[in-house]
């Protein structure tokens, strides 16, 4: 059966961990993120280790090092997505512009995971006028 293990790590451990995982042949399944109830960013680096997902969580950081040098597009696309959805910045990430959201929702105007739905609806209505 599928298993899930969660660990908390510090920002400084992200790159060494990614290098170790890559050397050991483990796939980066995804980088997920959300904002906790205190308004802090939570970012999970999830690796496939056998039948288990090992989830390494970094809490409360607005800027993180990119691991796109190590995991290529498997990391750069999720990192771009996390910037768009919740405003986490990744140092060393070559941003291509927009990934999912309209151009008008970039640069702090969107970040839909941290913007209440009623505000997003007002914004959409205003743009449609």
């Amino acid at each position: 059966m599928q298993e899930f293990k969660s660990f908390e790590i510090k920002k400084e451990e992200i790159v060494p961990l990614a290098k170790k995982m890559k050397e050991n042949g483990h796939r980066l399944v995804m980088i997920h993120g959300f904002v906790d109830k205190e308004g802090k960013h939570v970012v999970n680096y999830q690796y496939e280790v056998g039948n288990c997902i090992e989830s390494y969580t970094v809490k409360g950081e607005d800027t993180l090092p990119s691991i796109s040098e190590i995991y290529d597009v498997a990391a750069s696309w999720p990192e771009e997505e996390l910037y768009e959805l919740m405003g986490v910045k990744f140092e060393g990430l070559n941003m291509r512009g927009r990934l999912f959201l309209p151009d008008t929702m970039l640069e702090g105007q969107g970040h839909i995971l941290v913007t209440p739905l009623d505000e997003l609806r007002k914004k959409t209505l205003k743009e449609g006028e």
Partner: peptide, 27 residues
């Protein structure tokens, strides 16, 4: 891939959905 976070309430606190095309389109 479905990453789901719950807080003990009746709704999802967060679901993060990642689909195959997220890993194939970059190629």
């Amino acid at each position: 891939v479905y990453y789901v976070v719950t807080d003990g309430g009746q709704t999802n606190y967060r679901i993060s959905i990642h689909v195959p095309t997220f890993k194939t389109a970059p190629t």
